[in-house]
């Protein structure tokens, strides 16, 4: 159940670590993005990045363990959209993820999520542990 903190305009949702459980949150966020007048290109970028962040949290962070949880915090206003996605995993070093466009990796079926998020969002950062991603999209 979503709760709104009193001190910050941030909504926080904790869901079981399953992709189907994330659908409602994704749709809630996209509705709010639309409500704040973001252009279709921005909505496209946010939907794609959110999908990638949640998929990474479920598959890699929480290793497909449905007993674990995903914590999503988001704040949306007329200036920017900021979304944090955290998992229960041990974290990772994003600097160690290889470039999926290098010739030796171009035909591998995975490893493109982080690259797409970086291409589509204005800011993509991780916490020190590497188990929480922060995505920021500013209104054009």
């Amino acid at each position: 159940m979503a709760k709104r903190k009193a001190d910050l305009p941030t909504t926080e949702v904790v869901i079981p670590s399953r992709l189907d459980a994330a659908r409602t949150v994704e749709e809630d966020i996209l509705r709010e993005v639309e409500k704040h007048g973001y252009q279709p290109d921005a909505a496209f970028a946010i939907r794609l990045s959110l999908e990638e962040a949640i998929t990474n949290a479920v598959k890699h962070g929480n290793a497909n363990d449905p007993s674990k949880h995903i914590r999503i915090r988001y704040a949306i206003d007329g200036g920017k959209v900021e979304i944090h996605v955290a998992d229960d995993g041990p974290g990772f070093d994003p600097r160690c993820v290889p470039d999926p466009t290098s010739p030796s990796r171009l035909s591998l079926p995975n490893g493109r999520g982080i690259m797409l998020m970086r291409a589509y969002m204005d800011e993509v950062t991780y916490n020190d542990k590497g188990n929480e991603i922060r995505l920021v999209k500013r209104k054009a």
């Binding site: 496209f44 794609l48 998929t55 035909s107 079926p109």
Partner: peptide
């Protein structure tokens, strides 16, 4: 209208 990296992976396979 929308496509994720998982879909790209499926196409590559």
């Amino acid at each position: 209208e929308h496509l994720s990296s998982a879909a790209l992976g499926m196409l590559i396979t």
